[in-house]
């Protein structure tokens, strides 16, 4: 156990101690907020479920027993079975892998892209800003799901294309936020000071500008996760995302739609999963914003 006094020391002796200390302060502040703890628990649970899906799932996710089709929730099938006799709980558990994969891939593609475009536009200003922000505005002006639909239609249905389409529609928000953040400090003297040290623009943007936009981007990405999950589910629902027999939650709801009146559990169970995971990311994102960006506290 590392002593807290060492972590909270005002005079760390090494770079690592300083970083750990900052991390400790941050997580301590985060854990003081009960709602963000709930969010974090949900996210951790999702990670564990996705990692241990083969051990957790009682049945196969893709093969069912037609004799057992459309069974209501019971001791054997906790969430019931679908129209092909597949265990819905197992499908939801495996579906966590797909959802998590989509969310991570989108975050990894869209956030850095948006951050880069936003910081470059904000730092240089002038015509670079106008061109990049014009592009951003074009993307922003189109409804997200429709744009994603158009891309998937062009690229062809499938989970990889769905990820690419969602990422393409997600970055403009991050670019806007990053640019707005850069504008608040682009004339700051600490940037004049590095410029006077002959630092290149690439170095200034990467090492001095981006780190200051990072926390607002991370917060925004976490808050956006719910939206990304919903968009992915929406594409799945429309048959343009994950293809059968993949147990993607949105596609599962879509299939369950036909029996929603008589066999409610088929559509409801994956719906629950979507709601709970979206809520988890939202709560965690809210807590993260309070910690990383105290000046935003109490605002929408």
């Amino acid at each position: 156990m590392i002593p807290t006094a060492w972590l909270l020391s005002d005079d760390p002796e090494t770079r690592w101690q300083a970083r750990l200390g900052q991390g400790y302060r941050l997580s301590r502040a985060l854990l003081r907020n009960p709602l963000s703890v709930v969010g974090l628990s949900i996210i951790i649970a999702l990670l564990l479920v996705a990692a241990f899906a083969p051990w957790l799932a009682p049945f196969s996710a893709v093969e069912g027993d037609l004799a057992d089709r459309l069974q209501p929730p019971s001791a054997v099938h906790w969430m019931g079975t679908d129209e092909l006799g597949r265990d819905i709980l197992s499908r939801v558990i495996y579906g966590a892998r797909i959802t998590l994969g989509i969310v991570l891939l989108v975050a990894v593609i869209a956030a850095p892209l948006g951050l880069l475009i936003g910081t470059v536009a904000g730092y240089f200003g002038g015509w670079i800003d106008r061109v990049l922000m014009g592009l951003t505005d074009i993307f922003l002006s189109l409804p997200r799901l429709i744009l994603a639909l158009a891309f998937v239609a062009a690229l062809g249905p499938g989970i990889e294309n769905a990820v690419i389409a969602i990422a393409i529609t997600a970055w403009p928000v991050y670019a806007r936020i990053a640019r707005a953040e850069v504008l608040t400090f682009r004339n700051a003297e600490f940037l004049d000071a590095v410029r006077m040290q002959d630092a290149s623009s690439v170095r200034i943007i990467a090492l001095h500008v981006m780190p200051l936009c990072l926390s607002s981007t991370i917060v925004r990405v976490t808050l956006d996760m719910a939206g990304i999950i919903l968009t992915a589910a929406g594409l799945g629902f429309l048959g343009l995302g994950a293809q059968p027999p993949l147990p993607e939650w949105g596609a599962m709801i879509s299939r369950g739609r036909d029996f929603i009146l008589d066999q409610w559990w088929v559509a409801t169970m994956p719906g629950f999963a979507i709601v709970v995971v979206s809520l988890g990311f939202c709560l965690f994102g809210d807590g993260l914003r309070d910690v990383l960006d105290p000046k935003q506290r109490g605002r929408g």
């Binding site: 300083a18 700051a188 003297e189 600490f190 000071a193 590095v194 001095h208 780190p211 200051l212």
Partner: peptide, 11 residues
């Protein structure tokens, strides 16, 4: 301004 001339996130 000693507050504006140092990068707030850099040691």
């Amino acid at each position: 301004d000693p507050f504006g001339s140092l990068h707030p996130r850099r040691t």
